[in-house]
Design a protein around this nucleic acid. Structure first.
Length: 587
RNA sequence: GAUCCCGUAGCUCAGUUGGAUAGAGCGCCAGAUUCCGAAUCUGGAGGUCGCAGGUUCGAAUCCUGCCGGGAUCGCCA
């Protein structure tokens, strides 16, 4: 239960005692910190419902609340706002409890669910680029958040390792190296065990193939045929494809590791392939499929749909499948593997219609209830022109290059500020990496998931204000103070007894963590965590600027402040961890 | 054309079911360090919440229309 939950309960009882539904007692952090710490607007809503006087109801509720020892002040303002301020003793007690809590005061749900979260979605043979950034960053954060909140989460990268691009690659290799045994349909021997293509080959061949198919219908037809043959199990194609997979995966794994993004499952579209025939047979048995323009489809439109929802195409007219079919089969695969309560997809918002089709199809087929499948769409990262991000030359920026850019800038800043003086080269490189990635991740996550945002390198790399580096700095500084206290023999952190307004402000920030976690969890929106992390860091900076800690003369006060600092450091570590941001020991 | 999203301070953006004086960061102006890390802190200026109606005691938020921008709309993923 969060602090506001607890207050809502108390205020709710007061409402109930006045004969009003206790749900009107909902308390939130005050919009007017100059007037109070918390507020309840329920009297206005309740009065509206019962056609009574809000001010009178507020007064009656407030009179009851004044008997509560935890409130230092209860007052009514305006038409009936109930303003609440807690006693310092009550707040102190709550922060002491939070400090002892293993979850830093974070909210947890009572009964966790078993959840599969699908993000990443890299494609074989294509280097990761900026378009892969958001899914990786948001997905990783949500995975950590759900686990923190008590869910049993399995992450699946869901690689794009099937479909037309694979056919295009196969035909391209066939043109370059026609003598390889993979292309001989009569060949029955063993295929080369060493990869016949390198990563560089793949990254060159893929765009080459895709351009050729676009320009030449004959080549496109060739690739379509190869795709269909691969999917129907042609032995040589399958063996070559496996080589693509192995070569690509090693590179992909490295790049995600750079972003501290990891997966429990490295499955892909191809893993669902063996289930497709069975799934299709089952759909036919239920009379859910029909033939349309040579393709086999399942209709998913419903009465009352505001817009037209096209059917999901199970098999194209040439018999091959699209990603809708593999996505459907993947749901079945996951159901069989671990039977999750829910599946989450962290995929570009532009795929919304696709997922609507898949979810409805899954529901119709009895494979999975649609209301337990969630498409967590996100907006695009745009360039300064407001259009999806491109390099100056108009190309796609590789993720690797992006990370290099932020690292380089972080290193420059580190040198400029003189902070890295005396640090070894290895540590400087490590700090630059962590600071750069923190800047990148925080900038991305601090936007609401669903909205687009503009990537502007200058702003992005600014090290002042609401940024990842500011948070790292705050965390590092907290630890520096604690280390200094230890070295100076300042004694251990002890009982927290809040006095200064900055201490109370910091306490209120710490105690708001629970609400932030719950909100982020329920909405699947990490930016609420960013918001919290920033206000917490800010509250600490104010506290730090106003209150002496290590050299505070009064031992009890010193112990209290050390404890506050310690609790802040711990919570900051937890929040940044939930965002997938690593903190250097110093910077 | 249909459906959906967006339009809030000079810039980039928040704003949970309708509530008090619409917030933050950057930028700008003015300050703060004999003292624990100034990548910091304090104060200030800056807004017809795209436009016009409507509902309401009360609207950035809900409804209608319009203007402007974006996304999507069966055999790519």
């Amino acid at each position: 239960m969060t602090l506001t939950d607890e207050l809502s309960l108390i205020v709710g009882e007061a409402f109930a005692a006045e004969g009003v539904d206790p749900s009107f007692g909902e308390v939130k952090v005050s919009d007017r910190p100059d007037l109070a710490q918390f507020q309840c607007n329920g009297a206005l809503a309740a009065a509206k419902a019962t056609k009574s006087n809000p001010r009178a109801l507020g007064e009656a509720v407030a009179a009851r609340l004044k008997a509560e020892p935890s409130f230092a002040a209860v007052s009514i303002a305006g038409p009936g706002f109930i303003n609440l301020t807690l006693t310092d003793a009550f707040l102190s007690e709550r922060v002491n409890t939070l400090r002892a809590d293993g979850h830093a005061g974070g909210w947890r749900r009572i009964d966790g669910e078993k959840i599969v979260i699908d993000y990443g979605g890299p494609n074989i043979a294509k280097p990761l680029h900026v378009g892969h950034l958001r899914s990786a960053i948001i997905g990783e954060s949500l995975k950590r958040l759900l686990r923190f909140a008590g869910d049993d989460v399995t992450s699946d990268i869901h690689m794009g390792d099937w479909g037309l691009p694979m056919g295009q690659l196969i035909t391209e290799v066939a043109r370059e190296k026609p003598d390889l045994p993979f292309f001989d349909p009569d060949y029955t021997g063993a295929y080369p065990s060493e990869p016949v293509v390198t990563l560089e080959d793949l990254e060159r061949l893929y765009p080459q193939a895709s351009a050729a198919c676009k320009a030449d219908p004959v080549r496109a037809e060739e690739a379509r045929r190869a795709t269909a043959e691969l999917q129907s199990g042609r032995r040589g194609y399958r063996a070559l494809w496996e080589q693509f997979l192995a070569v690509s995966r090693a590179a992909i794994e490295r790049e995600y590791a750079d972003l501290d993004v990891t997966f429990d499952w490295w499955k892909g579209e191809a893993d669902a392939d063996p289930l497709i025939d069975e799934l299709a047979a089952d759909l036919r048995r239920q009379n859910l499929t029909e033939t349309s323009d040579g393709a086999e489809i399942i209709r998913v439109a419903r009465e009352g749909d505001k817009k037209e929802i096209p059917p999901l195409i199970l098999f194209k007219s040439d018999g091959s499948v699209l990603y809708g079919t593999t996505d459907l089969a993947t749901i079945l695969d996951r159901k069989r593997a671990i039977d999750p309560d829910r599946i989450l997809y962290v995929v570009d918002q532009r795929q919304a219609l696709h997922f609507e089709q898949v979810f409805r199809a899954a529901d119709r087929a009895g494979v999975f209830p649609a209301d337990h499948l969630e498409h967590l769409g996100f907006g695009t990262m745009n360039g300064p022109d407001g259009k999806p991000f491109k390099t100056r030359a108009g190309g796609v920026l590789k993720l690797r290059d992006l990370i290099d850019m932020v690292e380089t800038r972080a290193r420059e800043r580190l040198v400029e500020s003189g902070m890295a003086q005396g640090y070894g080269e290895i540590e400087v490189a490590d700090i630059a990496h962590k600071v750069g990635v923190a800047a990148l991740k925080f900038a991305d996550l601090s936007n609401p998931r669903t909205s687009d945002y503009i990537f502007d390198l200058d702003r992005f790399m600014a090290f002042e204000g609401k940024t990842g580096p500011y948070l790292l700095y705050a965390s590092v500084r907290v630890k520096s103070v604690l280390a200094k206290a230890l070295a100076a023999g300042a004694g251990a952190p002890g009982d927290i007894a809040l006095e200064a307004p900055e201490e109370i402000g910091l306490a209120l920030s710490l105690l708001a963590f629970g609400d932030a976690v719950r909100l982020a969890y329920e909405k699947r929106m990490p930016h609420f965590l960013c918001e919290h992390a920033f206000t917490l860091a800010q509250s600490f900076s104010k506290f730090y600027a106003a209150c002496r800690i290590v050299d505070e003369a009064d031992a009890a006060r010193r112990a209290s402040r050390l404890a506050l600092a310690e609790a802040t450091g711990a919570q900051l570590d937890v929040v940044l961890g939930l965002l997938g941001i690593k903190i250097p020991a110093r910077m």
